[in-house]
Write a protein that binds this DNA or RNA. Structure first.
Lengths: 351, 351
DNA sequence: CGTTTTTCCGTAAACGTTTACGAGAACACA
DNA sequence: TGTGTTCTCGTAAACGTTTACGGAAAAACG
């Protein structure tokens, strides 16, 4: 036996209470509430009034059970291994947009926390198997992503923030053009006279790190610069990771004159490491961040980088997810939309 | 009509399927699954085996409906007004601890997003009225908090991260000793020769900002320093807020020689503003942060501050919440626990 | 006025669980 | 053998909805 509402909870009226109060049947009450056509306009109004007066709101469990749908979408939020003290601020604006758009369709957004490290498989199964949500939204996509394989194989609706090679094109996805951003960063640095350009990436198989490096290498080749693996390092995708891994690329002989960091947290940690080595970002070395946040703007020096439009991305991915689900898509039918958004470089003081 | 699972979803077995497969009644299956005593050990094993084989897992809606409990706890996550681009990383480790402890009791943690600005009242009502969760956890407590009034009046179980004057002592709460931290910061600065000490707080009525200022003022008085309201400023609780508001306390005549920031984001924004004024934190002015995060450690200079033990706090608050709910509390019965944890100053380079 | 259509509403089943109740079988005891 | 107890299981109701179905009353039509 688990928690029950207190007896003094004034919000426990059911559809039966309304029916009794109005002396009509529960069927009529339900139809009136759901706006069906076969109910008299007058009785509908009486039901609506009574609902407001008795503070009625539908029991979610009952409704879900009957409808076979929960009216909610789950976002899988995953602390990364190494994030004991600090998390990813990236998602809050994204979730704000996601929830705003979902709310317009009467859907709730729930965020499901996983334990660090298990990469969500277990949590995801739980959400799917207990039918806690009608669809899920995934982030941190990997190149090969077992979550995507699982969901497609299970026939469970989902959408992803980020691309993957898994699952074909059968699901909606929204991603940023990290490949182009990587190339743009190199172009800009080369135009400013740099030839030795390092790259700091998150470890794991995160796809955006892969895409970034692809663009980086292509641009180097285009400029006739030979790729030097010693100038690339992978680390935890947080401050500690950037801090730990940046010294690795600062080779004693022929060190880089510029570093591209894959995200803001790693850049902040990396700049700390540089400072401790007596190297001043923006003066002694150029720094560009691929995925920045306002943190980078308020850093000294303000870091040049690409700002992802997180809130619009959340809204858009919600639209795309809904469009892919037959029950939600309009008369034109369900369709899978995949988008890759451009990333715009914002020049600040660090390069 | 909303989304339904795809037909190829292999996870749709119900208790009836198990019963049919084993040629026994659904009652027995349910009892076996729930570990009740009145079922033969042999049949129980057969049920368990079949459940695994048919990939059974209980339908959450059905269970919730029957039990009158959802087996899940909701955390209300709220983007602040002004957080268009960036969110609060503070909560991820807290949520990690919360979910870890709840999972030990078989409970799910769901995070409910609100829209920025409405301060959750509407979302909260929705969660409570549709009975989406058995209890909720609140953060960002204000001195007078209508959410707390609402929940106590509704008799709905909840716990808070942070204290409030609302609702009496009828609910569990876990807070940090911001008053002592504020005083400790002043003590440390005074011991280092400072007499003009500014304070930057979040606006709104957030209780921890109030507590901090109380400690600050008490310590000033203890040291015989007159309180100067011109050295106190309130702003949005993010980088932009710190950036915007810090110049206000840098009065041309008799400026402060030290600033205490209430949290990490405001401190980072504030340091940016200082840098643009040609004032170097750690050299020209001392800086202390009351609630820091690893960001402060990786900043240059590393900011002196107090680190909240977020993950343990999450675990503890889960324990406290569970202990307050009769259905969960052990034989000793439900009890309300309220705790205030000390905050330890970690000296770094900024003061 | 008789017939057909429309409007409106009540009845009851169903969604997947849990659980109170009772019944049959097996067993113990006198 | 008769009575009482224990073990195990099936039956059925209940949780709060939604909805297919049918029927009564009203309206429309000839």
């Amino acid at each position: 036996m688990l928690a029950r509402l207190g007896e003094n909870c004034p919000l426990a009226s059911s559809i039966h209470d309304l029916a009794r109060h109005l002396n009509i049947s529960i069927g009529t009450v339900s139809r009136a509430l759901n706006g069906r056509a076969d109910v008299n306009a007058d009785t509908r109004q009486r039901v609506l009034d009574a609902a407001k007066k008795l503070n009625y709101s539908p029991n979610q469990s009952g409704r879900s059970l009957r409808r076979g749908a929960t009216h909610s979408i789950a976002f899988m939020l995953q602390p990364h291994p190494g994030d004991q003290e600090y998390g990813e601020p990236f998602f809050i604006p994204f979730l704000t947009g996601l929830q705003a758009k979902l709310a317009e369709s009467g859907l709730d957004l729930i965020v499901v926390m996983g334990a660090p490290g298990d990469y969500q498989q277990e949590r995801l199964r739980r959400v799917v198997e207990t039918r806690r949500a009608d669809a899920v939204v995934l982030a941190w996509t990997r190149r090969e992503d077992e979550r995507i394989d699982y969901l497609t194989q299970a026939g469970f609706p989902f959408a992803t923030l980020g691309r993957s090679r898994s699952g074909g094109d059968a699901y909606p996805s929204l991603d940023l053009d990290f490949e182009k951003a990587g190339a743009d960063a190199v172009d800009r640095l080369v135009a400013r006279g740099h030839r030795r350009i390092a790259a700091i990436r998150p470890s794991l198989d995160l796809n955006f790190g892969y895409l970034f490096l692809t663009g980086y290498r292509k641009a180097l080749r285009r400029h006739g610069i030979e790729f030097d693996p010693e100038l690339v390092a992978d680390g935890f995708i947080n401050e500690a990771g950037g801090y730990a891994v940046t010294p690795e690329v600062m080779r004693p002989k022929d060190p880089p004159t510029a570093i591209i960091f894959n995200n803001d947290a790693m850049a902040l940690g990396g700049c700390k490491a540089l400072a401790e080595m007596g190297i001043r970002p923006g003066h002694d070395i150029a720094v560009i961040v691929i995925v920045d946040t306002p943190l980078c703007r308020y850093f000294s020096p303000a870091l040049t980088g690409f700002r992802p439009p997180l809130e619009p991305m959340g809204r858009r991915l919600a639209e795309m997810l809904l469009a892919s689900i037959p029950a939600f898509a309009g008369p034109e039918g369900a369709r899978i939309i995949r988008e890759v958004w451009p990333l715009e470089l914002i020049a600040r003081d660090s390069d």
